[in-house]
């Protein structure tokens, strides 16, 4: 299998403080990786750095995505290249409906790929299909982006957008936080439906419960800005039983 994403010795800082201290990680096409770790270990920083959040500075290392230097791409171009982040805290945008928001996103991507913009009928049809796929209420789709949404609605809206944009590599950052068990199941089912043979995911989570629904191929433990352990799915159970303390003690 081909390497989709290669992270080599990645160091990153925010406000001058080093958070990532040499991450190495390779994701092949089709794989699902889980990144676990205690609070403050750098999980969210890693996802933000990958999508190019301007608050973070990469001080060392490289990231190769689809054979390109990812770090040189603008955030929107990373998106066009198929990188999707389901935000831990989705942002509210008053007055902008989800439909208009997605139309702008879809057409920007098509333009990047040298395609004609989608016509309105086609687009609305696609929106309907994707909505059905993730059980998103049509009423929600007419509302402003995330404005006044409950926690579960916000996360479901993230997965809906993921369905529309059909990413190659999706990063789910603490997608389970703030969800009750029903909402969690719906979100996870959505993610699973969207999984194709050639697409990959990185699931970032503190707990095992999301991983009951989204089965990872490879599990990493991130601690103090470094990946300190990599193993198969069995590591999830071990972490669940033993907690993170033994990892901390070993490092």
């Amino acid at each position: 299998m081909e390497n989709l994403l290669e992270i080599k010795n990645l160091h990153a800082t925010i406000d001058g403080k080093e958070i990532l201290k040499g991450i190495n990680l390779t994701v092949k096409a089709g794989e699902v990786h889980a990144i676990m770790g205690p609070n403050g270990s750098g999980k969210s920083t890693l996802s933000n750095v990958l999508v190019g959040h301007p608050a973070y500075t990469v001080t060392e290392g490289e990231v190769i995505y689809k054979g390109k230097n990812l770090l040189e791409l603008a955030p929107e171009d990373r998106s066009h290249e198929g990188l999707f982040l389901s935000f831990q805290y989705p942002v509210e945008i008053p007055g902008v409906s989800i439909t208009n928001f997605m139309r702008a996103a879809v057409n920007a991507k098509r333009q990047y790929l040298g395609l004609e913009p989608m016509n309105a009928t086609e687009f609305l049809k696609m929106m309907r299909e994707k909505r059905a796929l993730v059980n998103l209420d049509s009423k929600l789709a007419n509302r402003s982006v995330n404005e006044g949404f409950s926690g579960g609605e916000k996360k479901r809206n993230e997965i809906f957008q993921m369905a529309v944009l059909e990413p190659t590599l999706s990063i789910l950052d603490e997608t389970d936080s703030g969800l009750d068990i029903d909402a969690l199941r719906i979100v996870a089912e959505g993610v699973n439906k969207l999984k194709r043979e050639d697409t990959s995911s990185i699931v970032i989570t503190h707990y095992q419960r999301l991983l009951d629904y989204i089965k990872p191929d490879i599990v990493h433990v991130l601690y103090n800005g470094k990946i300190v352990k990599t193993a198969g799915p069995e590591l999830v159970m071990e972490l669940e039983e033993r907690g993170y303390d033994w990892i901390k003690n070993e490092n």
Partner: peptide, 30 residues
């Protein structure tokens, strides 16, 4: 317009200029 809103748009593939246009038009929609 917050940096967070712009970045969220960027992540979804919408350039900054267009994102500002979108947000401003959303603000003025009424």
């Amino acid at each position: 317009i917050s940096e967070d809103q712009l970045f969220y748009c960027n992540q979804r593939g919408i350039g900054t200029e267009e994102a500002i246009g979108l947000i401003v038009n959303g603000y003025a929609k009424e």
